[in-house]
């Protein structure tokens, strides 16, 4: 009963967590600075950036996952409780982008963890990131078994 209540109440607000896996900061600027400002206001969707992976529901990964960052990314990613939705932001985590086949790249991200949503672009537009968050939210609801 408490479980159902928790599920029903938390559905309105998937919390976001951001991992920078060796990004050039372009996608991070689009994510944290542009998608968070009142003009695009991601909080209308109930989303809220959290500082702790243990509180997160949707994880947004930027950067091509460098060899140095791989273990840290996996450690932080494993701290996020299930069910979680992984969103690859920008072409780097999706395919490696301009860094593909480099000696220092352990990615793309889908080689390390299961990815659910991709949003390509270099960087993607804030509206495209919003679209990805909406898509991630619907996938998250499906994972919770609460597709509405």
């Amino acid at each position: 009963m408490l479980d159902t209540l928790l599920k029903k109440t938390s559905v309105r607000s998937p919390w976001l967590f951001r991992i920078n896996a060796g990004s050039c900061n372009g996608c991070d600027v689009e994510l944290a600075t542009t998608a968070l400002i009142p003009r695009y206001d991601v909080e209308r969707l109930g989303c809220h950036y959290t500082g702790s992976p243990r509180q997160a529901d949707i994880v947004l990964v930027t950067g091509p996952v460098t060899v140095h960052m791989r273990d840290y990314v996996l450690r932080v990613w494993n701290e996020i409780p299930e069910p979680k939705v992984t969103v690859a932001v920008g072409i780097c985590p999706i395919s490696g982008g301009v860094f593909r086949d480099s000696y220092s790249i352990a990615g793309p991200l889908s080689r390390l963890v299961p990815v659910d949503v991709n949003v390509p672009g270099c960087p993607p537009r804030p509206q495209a990131i919003m679209e990805a968050v909406v898509l991630a939210r619907s996938i998250w609801l499906k994972k919770l078994g609460l597709e509405g």
Partner: peptide
């Protein structure tokens, strides 16, 4: 056309 967000299964269809 900037609507680029898609699910993982469409990754290689784009």
């Amino acid at each position: 056309d900037w609507h680029s967000a898609h699910a993982e299964e469409d990754k290689f269809k784009r």
